[in-house]
Design a protein around this nucleic acid. Structure first.
Length: 850
RNA sequence: GCCGGUGUGGCGGAAUGGUAGACGCAGCGGAUUCAAAAUCCGCCGGGGCAACCCCCCGUGAAGGUUCGAGUCCUUUCACCGGCACCA
């Protein structure tokens, strides 16, 4: 028997699959179709274990579906635009294009040896002009359909580099390279009008039965539908151009607890006041420092400035409230102005305490002790569904839920005409402009006479110029000598190209549709899209739960609206699975100054550095990252153990939705197990043992059971559980005294069930065990239901919920008889006392209440 | 700060409200071997007991619902993901 050696077999079977064209996606009217897609990778240049895990899961699904008679589409591509390519160009002087395509070639070379059943003929990169040209066509159609708009938006501005920064380039409120304090600055930008679809995007979540409920919940909270009141506070102090401040509130029932009105530093009123009042201007400038992220704004210390203006309370003409400008009010949400009710909002309370503004409770709990916020307690913010007792009431009942209070307040305000109930969404329009080079150019030409004019479709794609340099900060498109100078398509006069490129989320919002016809001369081919869409199973990281998935759902709707997808594809992903990360321990020593120094796992052995013998500190597992050096290179693992071991390991130890910790011992164990299967298969193939009726029947029973368990495990994404069952069946086969024929049959089933996870090993042993053709093309085994039924079973007996014995009974024994046997079995524990009650859960358990 | 998730032996983890710890790793004992590697067999949550039986404790912490809770509810702690220009 030859020893198990992956290098000897894996390349050979990959060639055999290629030659047979096993993985070419072919429409077949005789078969149900199945489209399985994993989120495509960013071409960083190296694949990592997270990729291996993600694509292995998709591959298991794809291979299993092929075996169960589906026409399968399983494509791969590259999410190839983005910042890292420009950063690399700045750091080492190359060109983003060269860097990106070289990385793609490297990564493809690292991926192919893993044996994924991918239809590589459909591969594309989003930076291919053939792809982004179609994206420009889509953009123009969306522009025509009224789905695109242009207006001002706030960006991170680095005042030293004079350039826009991405959020990740802002560290502690400062530019990552210049170290200068970042400012929030307004720029005119392009938007997709996703907020027009907010209601539909929210309501349609309900129909996504095969999405994780946590993802649907996160999306629902992100879209954030709220019912509230829009009202205006009339100014009692004159202000130029303003006689009132419109405010939106989701808690109009707390209006009698209002103690101030506050506007965003970006509010028109704040801007107007800044022009006349240097103190206010200075405050607004200060408040605009720091990054644009919601996190930065929410966690910053709350500050404000009293404008000196006063407004009248709508419920009491004699009641005046001060108007503040405050840094925690977002201009993007509602009207950019609020009324503060410190008693029932934590942020307002912090603000009120800091600036000694009044705190007035409007409701208290219905019962129980309650310390009011005005007496020093925390803000009282119960769930809106919870009933509370109103102590400052102007509408509805004294005791009512917050929801009822809100509705009563809205009805009251509408009745008197000083406010109106509105439904608002937290979801903002999708800002798609980026002031960067390495992205899809926005196909628009700006003409002084004609405005923003679409590039004529016959001039697409608008290609990125290649003669650009990255020796300075800022967008090379802006400073390119000739690229931007074009005649206006409308009047022929002098005009300029738009130099903004598209957010890379645009690229990944429709690639799933492009895979159905990747060479089409239009964005999609409707026949192909109608056949292959929707994606039956989408697999990727939980970090994409909100933005990528929401944008893709929006794009699918936009593509339906512009005629690029059939109506049925408006929800592009039928089923979604979010997998966990691959983690690893971190090995750290310290340099002379006590700063941490990280070491790669392969440099460490037995808690010490191989090179110097210095002992390392082991930090618990975290997501693999280059900076912490806790990465394991799949290429090395494949070279040492083979692709099958890597694939088996990433699926075996953890449930797929959870993180998995890569350990050298675990990889070793996976390899040993594959070797064991290898030996058992060879032993079975060489066996001449005569039939052994009892053992043969037992093994056959176990064979049917494992078919049922593994099939169910794969279908429900219980890959780790399926693998545990395969371990169990391997043990059963090893111990079995069955004859040669039964053992060969069992071994053949074993390798076939393993084939989705370890396809190369499976092919080799399939052939050895007399399997016909390629295992990759063999039909999936079926379990005989009759073989799955056990004749007798063990029932545990509890007394007061604690296990005190067990009985073995025929599976269809009458309940009375089970009860009698159960009482007999636990007679000792009952000490002669008659039981109060006996609960028999047929087929499960008996509980005696003593 | 806000939204979402996770927490079970030395470790990764299993368990439709029904025998907690399947399966694997590590460890321990044994077989095989001149020896080792490889392989095979057995044991393996904590405590009590001479001991199989048996008894007590045990699923981050504290309460609750239930005949019965790792699982459901409330509070709380820790860690992870997202927060709109990282992908």
């Amino acid at each position: 028997m030859p020893a198990y050696s992956a290098p000897a077999i894996e390349a050979r079977w990959q060639a055999a699959w290629d030659e047979a064209g096993c993985f070419r996606a072919k429409a077949d009217p005789e078969k149900p179709k199945y489209y399985v897609l994993e989120m495509f990778p960013y071409p960083s240049g190296r694949i990592h274990m997270g990729h291996v895990r993600n694509y292995t899961m998709g591959d298991v699904v794809a291979r299993h579906r092929r075996a169960t008679g589906h026409a399968v589409l399983h494509p791969m591509g590259w999410d190839a635009f983005g910042l890292p390519a420009e950063n690399a160009a700045m750091a080492s002087g190359g060109h983003p294009k060269d860097w990106t395509y070289a990385n793609i070639a490297d990564m493809r070379g690292q991926m192919k040896p893993l044996g994924f059943s991918i239809d590589w003929s459909r591969e594309f990169a989003t930076c291919d002009p053939e792809y982004y040209g179609q994206q420009q066509a889509l953009f123009l159609d969306m522009l025509d359909a009224g789905l695109v708009t242009r207006r001002a938006a706030v960006v991170n501005w680095d005042p030293v580099e004079m350039t826009v920064l991405a959020n990740e380039q802002v560290v502690d409120g400062k530019g990552w390279r210049s170290g200068a304090e970042v400012e929030r600055r307004e720029l005119t930008q392009w938007f997709f009008k996703i907020s027009d679809m907010a209601g539909d995007l929210l309501d349609a979540l309900e129909g996504l039965d095969d999405w994780p409920s946590k993802v649907k919940l996160m999306q629902a909270n992100w879209i954030g539908r709220s019912r509230g009141l829009e009202l205006s506070f009339a100014l009692t102090t004159p202000a130029p151009g303003f006689d009132a401040i419109p405010v939106y509130t989701t808690r109009p029932d707390t209006l009698l607890g209002a103690s101030f009105v506050a506007v965003s530093p970006d509010h028109p009123l704040a801007k107007a006041l800044s022009e006349r009042n240097p103190e206010i201007a200075a405050y607004c400038e200060e408040a605009r420092k720091g990054g644009t992220t919601e996190e930065a704004i929410e966690t910053a210390e709350k500050t404000g400035i009293d404008t000196g203006l006063r407004v009248r309370h709508p419920l009491d003409p004699s009641w005046e409230l001060p108007v503040w400008i405050a840094n925690f009010i977002l201009m993007d949400y509602g009207t950019g102005a609020i009324f503060g009710c410190p008693a029932h909002d934590g942020r307002d309370l912090d603000f009120a305490r800091k600036y000694r503004l009044p705190v007035v409770s409007t409701f208290v709990p219905v019962e129980g002790e309650h310390v009011r916020p005005e007496e020093g307690a925390e803000a009282f913010v119960p769930q809106k569904s919870e009933p509370v007792r109103y102590v400052k009431l102007f509408a509805g009942e004294e005791v009512q839920s917050g929801d009822a209070g809100v509705e009563a307040a809205i009805a009251f305000a509408e009745g008197l005409g000083w406010g109106k109930g509105v439904t608002r969404y937290r979801l903002r329009d999708w800002l798609l402009s980026r002031q960067r080079y390495w992205g899809c150019p926005i196909p628009v030409i700006h003409c002084e006479a004609c405005g923003a004019v679409p590039v004529p479709r016959d001039q697409l794609p608008v290609r990125l110029p290649e003669d650009v340099t990255f020796d300075r900060p800022g967008n090379p498109l802006d400073r390119h000598p000739s690229w931007g100078k074009v005649p206006c398509p409308s009047c022929g006069g002098e005009a300029r190209r738009e130099t903004d490129t598209m957010d890379t989320f645009v690229d990944s919002s429709w690639y799933y549709a492009r895979f159905t016809a990747p060479q089409s001369a239009t964005p999609t081919d409707l026949d192909e899209a109608a056949y292959w869409m929707n994606v039956d199973q989408y697999i990727g990281g939980i970090e994409h739960a909100i933005l990528h998935l929401l944008y893709s759902r929006f794009f699918a709707r936009a593509m339906v609206k512009t005629g690029h997808l059939p109506a049925a594809a408006c929800e592009p992903f039928d089923a979604l699975f979010t997998q966990g990360m691959v983690t690893h321990e971190i090995y750290q020593t310290r340099d002379a100054n006590g700063r941490p120094v990280y070491h790669f796992p392969e440099e460490v052995e037995g808690g010490t550095l191989k090179a110097t013998g210095e002992s390392v500190e082991v930090i618990p597992s975290a997501k693999m990252s280059k900076s912490k050096k806790n990465v394991v290179d799949p290429v090395g693992i494949v070279a040492t153990y083979g692709a099958d071991t890597a694939r088996w390991f990433v699926l075996s130890d953890s449930p797929p939705e959870r993180d998995v910790e890569w350990t050298a011992a675990g990889a070793e164990a996976a390899f040993r197990h594959l070797g064991r299967v290898w030996r058992l298969a060879h032993e079975a193939a060489a066996s001449e043992a005569p039939a052994n009726p009892a053992a043969d029947a037992a093994l056959e029973r176990a064979r049917h059971k494992v078919i049922a368990e593994v099939s169910g495990g794969i279908e429900s994404f219980g890959f780790n559980a399926a693998i545990a069952k395969l371990y169990g069946f391997t043990n059963a086969l090893a111990k079995s005294e069955a004859g040669a024929e039964a053992k060969v049959r069992a071994a053949r089933t074993l390798v076939q069930l393993m084939a989705p996870m370890t396809p190369h090993l499976a092919e080799e042993l399939w052939t050895l065990l007399g399997g016909v053709g390629l295992c990759a093309q063999a039909p999936w085994p079926k379990a005989d239901p009759a073989m799955l039924i056990e004749d007798s079973m063990t029932l545990p007996i509890q007394v007061n919920g604690k296990r005190r014995g067990e009985i073995s009974v025929p599976r269809d024994l009458a309940v009375q008889e089970i009860e009698r046997l159960a009482l007999e079995a636990v007679a000792k524990s009952l000490e002669g006392a008659p039981p109060k009650k006996v609960i028999v859960v047929p087929g499960r358990i008996v509980n005696v209440v003593a």
